[in-house]
Amino acid sequence: MEGKDWLDKLRNALSLNPRQKGADQWPDWYRKYAELPHQLAPGKQAFRELDVVVLDAETTGLNPRKDQLLSLGALRLRGHTIRLKECFEAYLPTPEELRDSTAVSVHGIVPNSLRYRYTDLTSLMEEFLAYLGEAVIVGHHIGFDVEMINRALAGLGAGPLKNRVLDTALLAQKIHPPGYWTPQGEYALDKLARRYKISLSDRHTALGDSYITAILLLKLLSRLSEKRGRDLLVEDVFG
């Protein structure tokens, strides 16, 4: 209940945002997405029945106000299964002024390399929202990725993401609360992956990180389920 109120408030706040164009000026592809019911799953529903999309955005930096999206990778979970056929992966051309930026070396994305199929921001968002639908969004420190996507959407005259969001970093803390022995830094994706024995070979591509996050999610959920002594309900995970 609390979550619903909060979401409604947020929706109102966002619609008052001066940068936000009115709903009547939304591009068609966003309208199609926004018109989906976007209902919250009832708390007593089994979590594994939910449609889940694990996503990761690679960006030129960590400042949402200045930095831009470089690529977006996402995987869809069905219960305990990841179908590689149904993954989403798209790259944007590196912005001119950032060709020499450090992010390029971190992500190993060579600017405008022939290895990737590039797309423009509008088609990326259009395809991504069609892919995403009403799924629960899962990611590691996902607040940042959502913020980056929302800003990009706003720039295209569209509204923000309407999906429910789950952060694996917070989920990890639920299982292993932070304390003297586990400082906050222990919840970084690398550290958690090591703790839960997940191979890190694909780090720093959007899809590779989504994959690691997806495995992390599954391992965390099974530990939480063990802790609760039952199959997880929606309220066990979000509550």
Binding site: I82, A214, E226
Partner: peptide, 11 residues
């Protein structure tokens, strides 16, 4: 073949 693989997690 690899692209059609589904990764399945088994607790």
């Amino acid at each position: 073949v690899a692209r059609r693989v589904e990764v399945q997690y088994q607790p």
